[in-house]
């Protein structure tokens, strides 16, 4: 190692990997429904897309992506819930990888809920 910049580069590269292991629960939580119904409906690519993009875009220190079991609305799977401290829970339904990318960019990065995919929009409550 001939310079601090080299060290910094490795640190940056590893930072997103390592921040997954923070115990801090104060940030945004993205939860993908991964029960049998969700998986059958294609929840796994959605989960993986979220996990990948959050790390690629360096959001891991404030966004945690995890799964949960059945949310109880099987016909709307894949379902993704976004929990943000101080804001109401947002539930996205019938998700796919492409929609996930849109949610990462517009919601998680820029802070605007992508209304058209939400459960509220579809008239359910």
């Amino acid at each position: 190692m001939k310079s601090l910049a080299e060290l910094q580069a490795i640190r940056e590269k590893m930072k997103n990997t390592m921040s997954m292991r923070d115990e801090d629960a104060s940030g945004i939580r993205v939860v993908v429904g991964m029960a049998t119904c969700g998986i059958a409906a294609g929840a796994r690519p959605v989960l993986n897309e979220f996990a990948k993009l959050v790390q690629e875009k360096g959001l891991s220190d404030r966004v945690k992506v995890s799964q949960t079991g059945c949310i109880g609305l099987c016909q709307y799977e894949p379902i993704v819930e976004v929990f943000e401290p101080g804001r109401e829970k947002v539930t996205y339904i019938k998700m796919d990888a492409q929609k996930a990318a849109e949610v990462v960019e517009r919601h998680l990065e820029a802070g605007h809920v992508v209304e058209k995919y939400t459960m509220a929009k579809s008239g359910l409550k």
């Binding site: 060290l7 640190r11 590269k13 590893m14 990997t17």
Partner: peptide, 21 residues
């Protein structure tokens, strides 16, 4: 219990060798 002790990059990823620098 947090890092892989056999992977120096994980140590660096938590701020390791920053102090030496």
């Amino acid at each position: 219990g947090v890092i892989d002790p056999e992977n120096i990059e994980e140590y660096i990823g938590t701020g390791g060798y920053q102090a030496l620098g």
